[in-house]
Structure formats: structure tokens, C-alpha cells
């Protein structure tokens, strides 16, 4: 499997806190990688380094063979990355449908002149509706984010990221806020996308679903890489059990 994303020796410090420490990680094309670790392990921070929302103190991010470390966020997204954020960020002035339509209109929004000369939204609307259906929130397409519970907004994040047709889909705790049935069905969708060849990096606390759908796991603890390999081996690793599952049991 050839490498799609290559994270090289990334370190991120926030004042005195080292959120990510000398982490290197590779994701292959068509890979579905489960990314777990206790609260504050630096998972979100690493994803933000990939998208450019956080600039690391050291290290590089190489995507599809190109060093994108100095690229602005929008350029990385256009280059083939998409992120569904842990803290949901809907555009409140738009309906769910419009949120996804805008995202699906990448071919029109990239260049302001093209945007100025384009009016029709039918194609994007069709794409957006289908995505909302797939993530299970199609019935709320015309509702505004402010009226809906977290579970809907989480799936809106995923729909919006999918609308970008990324080469690598970054999902930060998409199942949080969903009930067991909803989580299971969204996890099924993620597995199905992966089976279709979509590369995905999935941060999740829901171990049950992660181990069910992810063949490979990467574990981070306290900003450091703890384990990386086939899911069953990683879950059997005593260090992982201590750091992560010990905490789980304590909860």
C-alpha cells in the first residue's frame, strides 16, 4: 500500500504544554486508520496540524508526496483533505442543506471569478441531499443548525466533509453525541466508504465501534505515539491497556 499521508516528527507545544511530541505516522491509500487515546492525548491537535489549523514547532506533513507544511488551510482542503471537527462548527445562517451545498460547490468557490459567474446550485443540491440521506439526517435538510441536537450537527460535519470529495477524510469523534443505533449506522457508513477505497483517519472514543470497523489502530498518549498496528494486537498491548483502557474502566 503506497503512502498517502506522511507525518514526520511533529511536535506541538502550547505554552508549557506539549500536546504532540515527536510523532511520526503514515496512512496509506485506501486505509481506514482508527486513532485512539485518552482525553488530552493530542489527537485533535495532530489532526489540526494535518489541516494547517495548528502550526507545529517541529516536523513536516507530506501529503501525496508533497510537503504541505507551509500551505494555508484552504489549499490543503483543495489538495484533497477534509475534516469533520470534534467541536461542531455549522454555518448558523444556513440550513443543513445549504451548509453541504456550499461545501459541494468547491469547483465554483475556489476562484472568485468563477463564483461570480455561477448561479445554478441544482447539481450541488442533489449531491448534498444524497449525502444528508446517507448520514441519516436527510429529514432535517431544511432545518437550521440552531434548532437541532448535537447528533445531527455531528453528522452534518461528516456530510460537509464528504461533500469535498477528499482523498483523505479526517473524522474527529464523529460518533460522539449519537445514540447507539445512530452510532452504529454511521460507523457502518464509514466502513462502507472505506471498503469503497476512501482513505479515512478516524478519531473515536467509542472503542466498540472503532474495533468493529478499523483493521488498524494507532494509539497516542500524552502527546506520544504508544502503539500502531493491527487492531487486535494493539488492543492486547499491556501499555495500551494501562494508558487507555485502564482509564476507561475507571470511568
Amino acid at each position: 500500500m503506497s503512502t498517502l499521508l506522511d507525518i514526520q516528527n511533529v511536535t506541538v507545544r502550547f505554552g508549557g504544554v506539549t500536546a504532540v511530541e515527536d510523532v511520526s505516522l503514515r496512512i496509506g491509500e485506501r486505509e481506514l486508520l482508527g486513532f485512539i487515546g485518552p482525553n488530552g492525548a493530542g489527537k485533535t491537535t495532530l489532526m489540526r496540524v494535518i489541516t494547517g489549523m495548528v502550526r507545529p514547532q517541529a516536523g513536516a506533513v507530506v501529503f501525496k508526496g508533497t510537503d504541505i507544511s507551509t500551505w494555508p488551510i484552504h489549499k490543503r482542503i483543495r489538495g484533497g483533505l477534509a475534516l469533520a471537527q470534534q467541536i461542531v462548527q455549522p454555518l448558523h445562517a444556513f440550513t443543513l442543506l445549504e451548509n453541504v451545498v456550499l461545501s459541494a460547490g468547491g469547483a465554483k468557490t475556489g476562484n472568485p471569478i468563477t463564483a461570480l459567474l455561477s448561479n445554478a446550485r441544482d447539481d450541488e443540491r442533489a449531491v448534498a441531499l444524497e449525502l444528508l440521506e446517507r448520514t441519516g439526517i436527510g429529514a432535517a435538510a431544511d432545518r437550521y443548525p440552531g434548532e437541532l441536537p448535537l447528533g445531527f450537527l455531528k453528522r452534518l460535519e461528516v456530510s460537509r466533509a464528504l461533500a469535498l470529495k477528499p482523498d483523505l477524510l479526517l473524522l474527529d469523534e464523529p460518533l460522539a453525541g449519537l445514540n447507539q443505533a445512530e452510532a452504529e449506522s454511521l460507523a457502518d457508513l464509514i466502513a462502507k466508504l472505506a471498503a469503497g477505497g476512501q482513505a479515512i483517519m478516524l478519531i473515536e472514543h467509542n472503542i466498540r465501534e472503532v474495533t468493529r470497523i478499523c483493521p488498524t489502530l494507532y494509539v497516542q498518549d500524552n502527546g506520544r505515539a504508544l502503539a500502531h498496528g493491527p487492531a487486535d494486537e494493539v488492543m492486547a498491548d499491556p501499555a495500551v491497556r494501562r494508558a487507555y483502557l485502564g482509564l476507561e474502566e475507571a470511568c
Binding site: T51, M53, P72, I73, H74, K75, I77, R78, L83, Q85, Q89, P90, L91, H92, A93, F94, E98, L102, S103, G105, G106, K108, T109, G110, P112, T114, A115, L116, L117, S118, N119, R121, R160, L164
Partner: peptide
């Protein structure tokens, strides 16, 4: 402009610049 995709983009920038950027919109240029 308001009816075009450019207006759509401006609405999103007025709403939330960071979100616009994360869905691939070159906010500064707009």
C-alpha cells in the same frame, strides 16, 4: 452578486471565517 455563488461564499464568510476556510474557501482572496 448576492444571488451568485460569490454571494453564497460571502454569506459564509460573514457567518464564520474559520469554517469557510476549512471547507476550502480562499477567504483572504474574497
Amino acid at each position: 452578486v448576492k444571488r451568485s455563488w460569490m454571494g453564497f461564499v460571502y454569506d459564509s464568510i460573514a457567518d464564520n471565517e474559520d469554517v469557510s476556510e476549512i471547507i476550502g474557501i480562499p477567504v483572504s482572496r474574497y
